[in-house]
């Protein structure tokens, strides 16, 4: 009996730790009308067009970041695993650097280099979005790197590549048909974290785009002036983020990445 008690206690504490703040936020968001529970705060949020546009913008940026990270990291890590194994510790260190560089330092660095001649990338909207995308990629790199690296370590990469080559496959076919499907679960794991980082990222988006374009700066701005709406937005953004993560998981669940081999 006691053996069952302790695991359940720890699980319950974990659930409380995770859900209690969300529950409290949710309850608070329903108290916009004095004395009764109502959806008034949610009505106000939906009436503000910036809520939808900022969330869509951040979602698009998150998906683009995930795509670009995959495009950059999967081939890079494959090459590292296959041909440059000695460089792996160096690249691993570089990939972890974003952990120790605060976003504010990163964004001021960007502005110093890219907001003045000769580059002046921030003069155009597209350029600014590109810079923001690059910043998001840097921030999410440690997570994506770790996930993809773990995925590649879990398969017999060299032999699978050689088997594909002996069957006539070129590199594009190998990446699309062999490597990617076998590390899909790992890539998805990294993608979830990347998605969450981009949706909640404040500093880069605020300094590069201003207050209401991306979701996190919009949330921060609303939070300064109002009480109940930020709570409603937080609950909604949590639900939307979870919804998108579930959709991504559904897309990626039809995978059989169980490693075959001698048994």
């Amino acid at each position: 009996m006691l053996r069952r008690f302790w695991p359940w206690l720890w699980v319950s504490l974990g659930v409380l730790y995770f859900f209690l703040p969300i529950y409290a936020t949710f309850v608070f968001s329903l108290k916009a009308k004095k004395g009764i529970f109502s959806l008034l705060a949610y009505d106000k949020v939906f009436a503000d067009p910036r809520f939808g546009s900022s969330f869509v913008f951040s979602t698009q940026m998150a998906l683009l970041t995930i795509f670009c990270c995959m495009l950059l990291l999967i081939p890079t890590l494959t090459v590292l695993h296959l041909f440059l194994r000695r460089l792996r510790p160096v690249v691993e260190f570089v990939a972890l650097v974003p952990f120790v560089i605060p976003s504010v330092v990163l964004v001021f660095g960007y502005l110093r280099v890219f907001a003045r001649p000769p580059l002046s990338i921030t003069n155009t909207t597209l350029g600014t979005y590109g810079l923001l995308l690059a910043g998001y990629m840097v921030l999410s790199m440690p997570y994506m790197y770790r996930s993809i690296d773990a995925g590649l370590r879990a398969i017999d990469l060299r032999t699978l590549v050689e088997a594909s080559q002996s069957l006539g496959a070129g590199w594009l076919t190998i990446f699309v048909r062999v490597i990617f499907p076998n590390i899909r679960v790992a890539v998805l794991n990294g993608s979830f974290v990347t998605f969450a980082i981009v949706i909640g990222e404040l500093t880069l988006a605020r300094f590069l785009l201003g207050n209401a374009v991306a979701f996190a700066p919009y949330l921060a701005e609303i939070g300064r002036a109002r009480a109940y709406e930020p709570a409603a937005i937080t609950v909604l953004s949590l639900l939307l983020t979870w919804g998108i993560v579930v959709i991504m998981q559904l897309i990626g669940r039809n995978t059989t990445a169980t490693v075959a081999g001698p048994r």
Binding site: D156, A163, S166, N182, T258, G261
Partner: peptide, 30 residues
């Protein structure tokens, strides 16, 4: 000549079957 242009089949010690593919897909890959 690169390995994918040699028309030489190879069987590996560790089998090297593609884990994401069925038996039929593995055999039909080439």
């Amino acid at each position: 000549t690169p390995p994918n242009k040699r028309n030489i089949g190879m069987v590996f010690q560790s089998y090297a079957l593609f884990p994401n593919m069925t038996v039929a897909d593995n055999v039909g890959f080439g």
